[in-house]
Design a protein around this nucleic acid. Structure first.
Lengths: 178, 178
DNA sequence: CTTAGACATTCCACTATCGACATGTCAAGA
DNA sequence: TCTTGACATGTCGATAGTGGAATGTCTAAG
């Protein structure tokens, strides 16, 4: 149940945000870390309110509701951060397909890997665009957001290198040739 | 809907496997790539059978059912591999928490990162154990499984290095100190 | 003979996620 | 004034995923 904590965390750092504001943060800052759709987000806001972890602190124009985290919400967030263990990612569709690459032709294999590498290049460009666009302040979100961004860069660089290695490996098989 | 294709792919390479056999493959070979629980797996086998992508080719002791991929199944697999685009991962609980690390004490931040690094070391040991235990043959699954395994190693090494960097970054903040 | 443990399947209730749709407000410029 | 586009919230149905329990069979060791 991490969407809940993503919302709670965002709200804790950006008090008085609306669902719409949060949605934008999910799209920009959290895009590669924890995605969310509108329906999920508004649904979670309703549940969090019902559970007493957040509350509407102000109603603005266009039906805008600004939320704030309650004491219970802060406690829940602290509990999640310090007392629960994150579970490791164990799903990667790109890699899953690599596992089955033996089922297609050599040309298709190469096409697949080159295609993924191209996507990666695009995402890399995207992350650099965000990096330049975001005004990095001295607040906590900037501070730790920077760490996450650096991770994203390293991650993509690593994947790129691995793909190049895999392509070489495929055209020139190791030790015992077939 | 990738569980479906993971099952189909596994079955295409290991014809005549039972749900139980597949379950073990998910646990060992696919653990870091695409996880599945029993209930999911058996449910998917039933659906795949209903859709005509696989069929029971043999019934063994203990109610064992050995499955085989049908022509339609092979076609579906080929289609998936060559005509559909994989969607990028965009969920990482470990990183999500890093984003909110500003909400806890410096000691807890460090504890968190060190804890993740320890987990990583464990997983690294695990992957090496699997590497040694698995009999790497010359079949396709071994060939491409090796690529995936190499990815796993690089991934964990990268995360480790990043965590060490992040720890240094936290104790010695960059440019404009606070 | 007994029993532990691997083999093997199936069902269930719950929660999470996705994608599309519906509805409406407000500000600014043509 | 009209229209466009950003702002803003919400509902729905379908599918996917989790975790646990129930049930039973076969084999090998003691």
């Amino acid at each position: 149940m991490s969407l809940r904590h993503a919302v709670l965390g965002l709200l804790a750092e950006m008090d008085g945000s609306s669902g719409y504001d949060l949605m934008r943060m999910f799209e920009v800052s959290l895009a590669n870390v924890w995605g969310a759709t509108q329906s999920q987000l508004y649904g979670e806001l309703a549940k969090l309110t019902a559970d007493g972890f957040i509350e509407v602190v102000e109603e603005g124009p266009r039906g805008r509701k600004a939320y704030g985290v309650t004491a219970a919400g802060r406690e829940e967030l602290r509990r999640w951060l310090t007392e629960t263990a994150p579970k490791a990612v164990r799903r990667d569709e790109v890699l899953l397909r690599v596992f089955f690459l033996g089922l297609v032709t050599p040309e298709q294999r190469e096409e697949y890997l080159r295609g993924r590498a191209a996507e990666l290049a695009e995402r890399q460009a995207g992350i650099e665009a965000v990096e330049e666009a975001v005004s990095w302040g001295e607040d906590d979100l900037s501070r730790y957001g920077r760490l996450v961004m650096e991770y994203g860069k390293r991650f993509m660089a690593m994947r790129r290198e691995w793909m190049e290695w895999a392509l070489r490996e495929l055209e020139d098989p190791p030790t015992s040739a077939r």
